[in-house]
Simulated scan of single mutants.
Amino acid sequence: MSNMYYVHPEAKIGNNVTIGNFTNIYENVEIGDNCEIAGNVTIYPGARIGSGVKIFPGAVISAIPQDLKFRGEETYAYVGDGTTLRECVTVNRGTASKGKTVVGSNCLIMAYNHVAHDCVIGNRVIISNACQLAGEVVVDDYAVIGGGSLVHQFCHLGRNIMLQGGALVNKDIPPYVKAAREPISYVGLNTIGLHRNGFSQEDIQKIAEIYRVLYLSDLNVTNAIKLVQETLPESSYRDEIVKFVVNSERGIIRSAV
């Protein structure tokens, strides 16, 4: 039986790539070695897919943005090595704003997720089923996003966070925390996740001290950050959290306590 899929002659396909029936791969697509692309997948121009990527049925990669400002400019959608995109995931390509949408390496993007234009997803991120990420959302490494969550455009989710399922996110979530409730709020550290990712108890304690000042001191954010810098010893965690909060354009989530 002849192959029942379509690959444009200008597409660049690596070695040992399997392609399922009724999949369409267009021009200006590059796919690395050892990928598994199931049936009924559509990969549009601008896709740049790494090695060892698994793409399940119904996924659509690098479709044009759902953004009225898009004028047909040449942009891209990147998927890093070892990432899995489950059924019906959509990853739109970028706009003139950033020029590319990026999903990092070794991520698990579960079924029915949407990653909009110009999003930047870090490495080893897990996004559970049916989440919707609006344009230009940034998700840092090792973040875990619960199923059914909706993330407002331009939000920034820090590294190693744990976000509850069904969350409505309209503020930035600083690194290493758990975020839950409605409105979405700080409810503590992602202690289990930090232990699983090799953080020592000493490191976790340093992070906890920073957030005790930031969220439990009854100070506004500006004064709490100042107190963190004045009273807590210098560390990479302190500098990272302070930088995240100071650079937050949408403002950070507040405490539920």
Rank of each mutant, 00 (worst) to 15 (best):
S2I: 09
M4L: 14
V7N: 08
K12G: 11
I13N: 06
I13L: 04
G14E: 08
G14N: 04
N16M: 11
F22Y: 15
I25S: 01
E30G: 10
I31V: 05
D33Y: 11
I37Q: 07
P45V: 04
G46F: 00
A47D: 07
A47I: 04
G52V: 00
K54W: 03
I55V: 08
F56Y: 12
F56R: 01
V60Y: 03
I64H: 05
L68M: 13
L68K: 12
L68G: 08
K69W: 06
K69F: 08
R71Y: 13
E73M: 02
E74K: 09
A77H: 10
V79I: 14
L85D: 02
E87G: 03
R93E: 13
A96R: 12
V102R: 09
M110W: 06
Y112I: 07
N113I: 08
V115G: 10
H117P: 07
C119A: 02
N123L: 00
N123M: 01
R124C: 13
V125K: 02
Q132Y: 14
A134T: 04
A134F: 08
A134C: 05
A134E: 03
E136G: 12
V137F: 03
D141L: 00
Y142C: 10
A143K: 00
V144C: 09
V144Q: 10
I145Q: 01
G146Q: 01
L150I: 15
L150V: 15
N160V: 09
M162G: 04
G165W: 07
L168M: 10
K178D: 08
E182W: 14
P183F: 09
I184P: 11
G188R: 03
G188Q: 04
N190W: 12
L194R: 03
L194S: 04
L194N: 05
F199G: 13
F199R: 03
F199W: 14
L214D: 14
Y215C: 10
L219F: 06
P233I: 09
R238T: 14
I241Q: 13
K243N: 15
N247Y: 08
G251T: 10
S255M: 13
S255C: 15
V257G: 14
